[in-house]
Design a protein around this nucleic acid. Structure first.
Length: 667
DNA sequence: TACAAGTAAGTTTTT
DNA sequence: CTTACTTGTA
């Protein structure tokens, strides 16, 4: 910030007849303004945490629209679709124009839309089914069993591991052989079989109109590469491309950007290398480092002024990240005054940690801080279990984000499977799931039936035939009921919610038998699910949404009565990305939890460090980092815990410490 | 072949 | 504490 910057106007663009309603220069700092008024050509914005990154994107969209760019020519890629929606709502308020035609969402949702519209060119049916990770694993498990790899004496990797290898290789655009050498050397002995399995998996999906998450990106790239006329058309229609959170894109996504921008190179990438936390998904923070090479001549603008946090919090964040090995150097600063320093709080054990957090939250609420302004963050979803109990005990309402999603529970997946076979009768994964629920049908029978159903022209007739040909009494009526349901929900005049209601009615008795211990809880989930789906008019859209943007909160923790009530947020750090609160607690800031036991090599430790940086920069006013001294470990039993290595050697003027003690008078 | 019950092992983050 | 695989029975 040493130099004073004087901007020269481009007379051809800023001509007098086009007056901007928004006073950009008054509302933005010089760096933000430069990014917002940048017109054509590639632009990289390195945006530190809290530096007004979202604001910059919003004003840039507004500016483009005010300059006469049709909203439909703008493509806004974000990390979640909700982020895109919120941004566009703010743009609408700014420009007073409808922005609904701005294309926005995740790479995956964008790919989904394009492939449904243009995929036929490459032989892709528009009613393809999207497989989530669980579905992918189901298929792999099936193929693994078919290939006789499960029953062997030798230990063979589990479905989850296999799925991980396959997916990682694709996200990094490597072949499987290279993937084994680099990331999974311990699986080298199985590589032949896994490669064979991966080939079968590909064939299985292609034959049945199934696309997993990685396929969405791959098939889109394939479409754009192999069909230049489609690429040109798309590139010409999306003349301005903006990508948020660029540090968390992977190689295939970078390639997609390149292809989509091939006609104009109008790409604005925004991100922060210090916040790259998705390498487990194939994200490569080198993407952001190498953006200027991918788009030669790219302009680079850095946003360093932080508008979120008090200086004490930034000092800690800067200190944590300064020890990172590789980064675009930037130092966050703020003009916010205020004496608060983050504090490292040591508890005796996990429960004391929970009691401290709950107590402090109640104190803050007494002081007038709303629960909505507070969050508790943690490295892994299960770290909050004890705290959740404590919060329930004290009647503190909360929502939990991240971790296990209710959409992934068996009962929701069961219901969805029935709707998925309606949308795509070739969807063998879902048929299998639905058939296994029929009493008297096990995996063997189900597998045979699935092949017949997928090949059949009219599935309901095939179901009727199965009902007649089965030797088992129970199975016959089971098939008949399934056939009746199928006929009912196939009715195109029914809304998705009505189909869900019919499916739930069919499913409830089956669920009670399958889950005698906890079916009431599951029934509540189904009710919740029913509510979520009310707003959909198209079954296909509903199914795609459930796969691509499932509701992120896991149910169960919510204690409050009405929607007007305030909630405390519990969240994994990953799910807290891009969000902010006045008060933030980071629990389990202990070595062995954060960084976790899985992080051993240099690279993953570096990623954990960035994760700590992300966590601490979520806080505006106050930041509490806590850890217990005694931690229970399944292997070692109780052991002495120590503070996270990212925190324990920091000077006391950056991070003072405190120890908790029980006061007999209280409690 | 289906399914219940019992035993053994493994446990991050998410589109 | 959950899931995955084995064993036993109908």
């Amino acid at each position: 910030m040493a130099d004073k910057v004087i901007f020269l106007r481009d007379p051809s663009r800023d001509s007098s007849d086009r007056a901007y309603k928004i006073k950009y220069a008054d509302l933005l700092n010089p760096a933000q303004l430069a990014a917002v008024t940048h017109s054509d050509g590639p632009l990289l914005v390195i945006a530190g945490a809290g530096s007004g990154k979202t604001r910059t994107l919003i004003y840039r969209v507004a500016r483009l629209i005010e300059s006469g760019v049709p909203p439909g020519a703008i493509l806004l890629m974000t990390f979640t679709r909700r982020a895109a929606q919120e941004m566009l709502e703010r743009v609408e308020r700014l420009v007073g124009e409808i922005t609904r035609s701005v294309a926005g969402g995740t790479f995956h949702s964008f790919a989904n839309n394009v492939l449904r519209r243009h995929g036929a060119q490459m032989g892709l049916k528009p009613n393809f089914t999207i497989l989530d990770r669980g579905d992918m694993e189901d298929v792999i498990n099936l193929l693994r069993a078919r290939m006789g790899l499960a029953s062997r004496d030798r230990r063979f990797p589990k479905k989850g591991t296999i799925a991980e290898v396959i997916s990682m290789a694709r996200n990094k655009m490597r072949d499987l052989l290279a993937e084994f050498e680099v990331d999974f050397p311990h699986l080298l002995e199985h590589q032949g079989e896994i490669i064979a399995l991966a080939e079968k998996y590909e064939a299985y999906k292609r034959e049945r109109g199934l696309l997993d998450y990685d396929d969405l990106l791959y098939r889109l790239a394939e479409l754009l590469r192999q069909y230049p006329q489609v690429r040109r058309r798309l590139s010409q229609s999306y003349r301005y491309i903006m990508i948020d959170e660029y540090q968390d894109t992977n190689r295939i996504q970078a390639e997609l950007v390149k292809l989509l921008a091939s006609e104009h190179r109008n790409v604005m990438a925004v991100g922060d290398d210090a916040q790259s936390i998705y390498s487990f998904r194939g994200a490569n923070f080198r993407n952001i480092m190498e953006f200027p090479e991918l788009f030669a001549g790219a302009r680079v603008i850095k946003l360093e002024e932080n508008y979120r946090s008090v200086q004490g919090i930034l000092d800690l964040a800067n200190e944590v990240i300064s020890r990172a090995a590789e980064k675009y150097t930037k130092v966050l600063f703020t003009s916010r005054r205020g004496g608060f320093r983050p504090i490292l709080v040591r508890a005796q054990d996990e429960h004391m940690q929970s009691r401290f957090v709950a107590q402090r939250i109640l104190e803050l609420r007494e002081e007038g801080v709303e629960l909505d302004e507070m969050a508790v963050l943690f490295r892994s979803s299960f770290h909050s279990f004890d705290l959740e109990l404590e919060l329930q005990r004290r009647d503190i309402p909360f929502v939990k984000r991240g971790g296990f999603k209710f959409i992934e529970t068996a009962h929701i997946k069961d219901v969805l499977a029935h709707l998925r076979v309606v949308a795509n009768p070739a969807d063998a994964v879902s048929w299998l799931r639905a058939l296994m629920l029929v009493r008297g049908v096990g995996h063997r029978t189900a597998e045979r039936a699935v092949e017949a159903l997928v090949a059949a022209d009219a599935p309901e007739r095939e179901l009727a035939r199965l009902a007649q040909s089965t030797a088992r009494e129970g199975a016959a009526s089971g098939y008949a009921r399934l056939a009746a349901l199928f006929a009912e929900i196939r009715d195109k005049t029914k809304r998705p919610a009505e189909k869900i209601a019919a499916t739930i009615a069919y499913y409830l008795p089956l669920m009670r038998e399958a889950f005698p211990d906890d079916y009431p809880k599951r029934e509540r989930d189904l009710e919740h699910f029913q509510n979520i789906t009310e707003r959909y008019r198209s079954l296909e859209t509903m199914l795609a949404d459930m796969a691509l943007e499932p509701p992120n909160d896991s149910l169960g923790g919510v204690l409050a009565e009405g929607p007007e009530d305030e909630f405390l947020t519990l969240s994994t750090i990953h799910s807290a990305k891009g969000l902010e609160w006045r008060i933030v607690f980071v629990i389990w800031a202990a070595d062995g939890r954060f960084p976790g036991p899985m992080s051993v090599d240099e690279e993953s430790i570096e990623e954990e460090r960035r994760l700590m940086y992300v966590a601490s920069t979520r806080a505006r006013d106050e930041l509490y980092l806590t850890y217990p001294i005694y931690m229970f470990d399944r292997i070692n039993g109780y052991m002495m815990g120590r503070a996270s290595r990212f925190l324990d050697d920091l000077p006391a003027e950056i991070l003072p410490t405190a120890t908790l003690q029980d006061a007999e008078s209280i409690e």
